[in-house]
Amino acid sequence: MQVPATFGYELAPDLAGALALLARHGPDARPIAGGHSLLPMMKLRLAEPTVLVDINGLTELGGITVDGDAIRFGAMVRHAEVLDSAVVAEHLPILRDAERVIADPLVRNRGTVGGSLCQADPSEDLSAAFSALGATVVITSRDGERTVPVREFHRGPYETAVAHDELVTAVRVPIRPATGSAYEKVERRTGDWAVAAAGAVVSLDGHTVVRAGIGLAAVGAEHFVAAEAEEALRGAPATAESFAEAGRIAAEHCRPTADQRGPVDYKRHLVGVLVARTCHRAAARARGEV
């Protein structure tokens, strides 16, 4: 069995303590939450942090709460909690759709919302879903909190806006009226990373789309977003034709690469199909039809 190289271990007592430990141990230290992205990389020795700062004891980073017109996800919320949450089921079905297809139930018992975002894997479903939702990431350092729109959070594959002595502490998602959302992923097998995936958040005024958020995973979309397709949908009628057109635009602008999950033309095709399908389902949900 593959095993990690040696490292030091610190159990953070609380948020302030965690931030102090990260600052003290410098850029080669890493926080560990669920560890389900980091530990496999460490076993492969693709990541060799000198110190792990365990933040699993930080209860202040837990909980899914309604906070005015937003829902706050603590960074340490496990995927399984998102999937089981009644609040999520009511307001953010896109997250429920996404969580059903993220890894597997055992991984979801351990992996966290914050950890997924910080891993910044280009195929990460939650990043695409939060981007579609227009979420905001709360980042805390010893100097206090700052917020970064999720669409500015990812700086590239495996790179984020979080400095080595900072922690993501929460994600805030706005609740919008007359809005529905959906997520769909094509995978080679349950638990596999996406061949391609799309999430849509559609706000309606009657039969008109007043706002659309479209997130894409695994297809090289900048910040996990199909911005041109969102733009095209704004003010458009909520019809199959509009959604198909949004899909076509999203397919044109994403930049997938070929791998064993599929060739480029196929992935582009999937983006078209999945954007149209998720927009359609999101609109239906906005209308309360499903």
Partner: peptide, 14 residues
């Protein structure tokens, strides 16, 4: 909670 113990450090189970 069922978890994959290959991806949990023993120290995290303290």
């Amino acid at each position: 909670v069922p978890v994959k113990s290959c991806t949990v450090l023993a120290v995290m189970a303290d």
